[in-house]
Amino acid sequence: MPTIGLIINPMAGRDIRRLVAAASLQSAPEKMLVVRRLFSGMSGIPDTEVMMIDDYEGFGRYALHELNDLLPVKLIAGEKEPSNGASTIDWAKRLEQAGARVIVSVGGDGTQRNIAQAQLRIPILPIAGGTNNVACWTGDQTAAGYACALYLARGDDPLDVGFQAKLIHVQLESGHEELALIDVALVRQAYTGALAVWHAEDVERLLLTVADPVRPGLSNVGGFLYPVFPGDDVALQVTLRGGPPGQATLAVMAPGLMTPFYVQQAEPLALGQTVTWSRKEGGSLALDGERSVVLKPGEPVMLRVIRDGPFVLDPTKILRKG
Rank of each mutant, 00 (worst) to 15 (best):
P2D: 10
T3A: 11
I4P: 00
G5E: 04
I7M: 09
P10F: 03
R14L: 06
R14Y: 01
L19K: 15
V20F: 04
Q26T: 08
P29L: 05
K31M: 13
M32L: 15
V34A: 13
S43R: 13
I45Y: 00
D47I: 00
D47C: 05
D47T: 05
V50P: 01
I53F: 00
D54Q: 09
L64M: 13
L70Y: 04
P72W: 00
K74M: 12
A77T: 14
G78L: 03
S83T: 14
S87A: 11
I89R: 14
D90M: 11
W91N: 06
K93H: 07
L95V: 00
G99D: 10
A100P: 01
V102F: 00
G107Q: 06
D109W: 07
I115Q: 00
A116M: 08
A118S: 08
R121V: 01
I124C: 05
I127E: 02
V134I: 12
C136V: 08
W137A: 04
L150I: 06
G155M: 06
D156G: 06
F163P: 01
H169L: 08
E178P: 01
E178A: 07
L181F: 10
D183T: 15
Y191C: 11
T192W: 03
T192I: 15
L195V: 09
V197F: 02
W198F: 15
E201I: 02
D202G: 05
D202M: 11
E204V: 09
P213K: 12
G217L: 10
G222R: 12
G222L: 10
G222N: 13
G223T: 11
D232K: 03
Q237A: 14
A251W: 10
M253K: 12
P255W: 05
G256T: 10
M258C: 07
M258A: 12
T259V: 15
P260F: 09
V263I: 13
V263A: 06
A266K: 12
L271W: 04
L271F: 08
G272D: 11
A286K: 03
L287Y: 04
G289V: 01
S292G: 02
S292P: 00
K296V: 04
G298W: 05
E299D: 06
E299K: 08
L303V: 03
D308Y: 00
V312I: 14
T316S: 12
G322D: 13
